[in-house]
């Protein structure tokens, strides 16, 4: 079968909302049912929280002249990280669908590729949103941001912004996964894509505390703006102006979704 690679016939036509919803629901169900995945992602985030915020206790962090507690600083970065990790790996779930044959069932169905792509993207985005929410609730409950009633509506406000941020991130995962055929490359993606994006996003250290060269590199990393806008919503302070963050994230989401849709549309199945 492996040599029989050829592009499949695509169904053109309208998006079907019910189909989009059932595909998204499938992703959400997969997340909720996979308890090891939830537990391990929470454990990883907690580990980062304790190690990094602990290390930062002696350092004063100030953004825009406002002092920020190291715990609050790192915690907000970790919440943003939840989006990055679960978004990219959720997008990579397509590889699994292709390997176990389920993608074939989706491709013969009388639905357009756009519907398929939208359903998948939305599903993974909601999945990472859920994970982000879990992290936020844990952080608030543990008192990293102090106990302030305004945190409730801050967290609620965070959700639409997290959705915007996750769309771009899911786009990365989708784009990669339509080109990969096996799980072996997962390690490479982890080492050469996700980790650098994470370390250079300012999730764990302050933008203004690093050398200028690193600041420039960080400015080219779209994840930095996601982390920054998360800080703006949760802590009320940010390095970049709000409109810059929103603009960059919107452009990031739009471009990645377009690339993702394009590679999804040209996806081949062996």
């Amino acid at each position: 079968m492996s040599r029989k690679v050829s592009s499949y016939v695509k169904i053109e036509g309208r998006m079907r909302w019910e189909a989009i919803w059932v595909l998204s629901k499938r992703e959400l169900l997969a997340f909720v049912r996979n308890k090891t995945r939830i537990i391990s992602s929470i454990a990883q985030a907690l580990l980062f929280l304790f190690v990094f915020s602990g290390g930062f206790f002696s350092i004063d962090i100030s953004i825009d002249g406002v002092d920020v507690s190291p715990m609050a600083f790192v915690a907000s970065g970790i919440i943003a990280m939840a989006i990055l990790f679960s978004g990219v790996f959720g997008g990579l779930g397509i590889i699994r669908d292709r390997m176990f044959g389920f993608m074939r069932e989706l491709l013969v169905a009388p639905i357009s590729r756009r519907t398929l792509m939208t359903g998948k993207t939305l599903g993974v985005a909601l999945q990472s949103l859920l994970q982000c929410l879990i992290m936020a609730v844990i952080s608030v409950a543990m008192g990293f941001f102090g106990y302030d009633p305004s945190l409730i509506w801050r967290i609620i406000l965070l959700m639409p912004i997290a959705l915007l941020f996750s769309l771009g991130v899911v786009g990365i995962g989708l784009t990669i996964s339509t080109r990969l055929t096996d799980f072996q490359s997962f390690g490479l993606i982890q080492t050469f894509l996700i980790m650098p994006m994470f370390w250079l996003s300012g999730a764990l250290f302050a933008f203004n505390s690093v050398p200028e060269i690193m600041q420039i590199i960080m400015m080219f990393n779209p994840i930095s703006y996601g982390v920054d806008i998360f800080r703006y919503v949760i802590l009320g302070v940010s390095f970049f102006p709000l409109w810059v963050n929103l603009l960059v994230l919107s452009a990031f989401a739009a471009i990645l979704i377009l690339i993702g849709a394009n590679s999804f549309s040209n996806m081949q199945i062996s």
């Binding site: 019910e18 189909a19 499938r26 997969a30 049912r33 169905a109």
Partner: peptide, 23 residues
């Protein structure tokens, strides 16, 4: 020829998803 079920869904859910995709 190759299996094309989603193993992480129940049998009924597999069928339900198919039915919805077919409108």
């Amino acid at each position: 020829q190759e299996p094309s079920l989603d193993g992480d869904m129940k049998a009924e859910e597999n069928l339900e998803l198919h039915a919805i995709l077919y409108g």
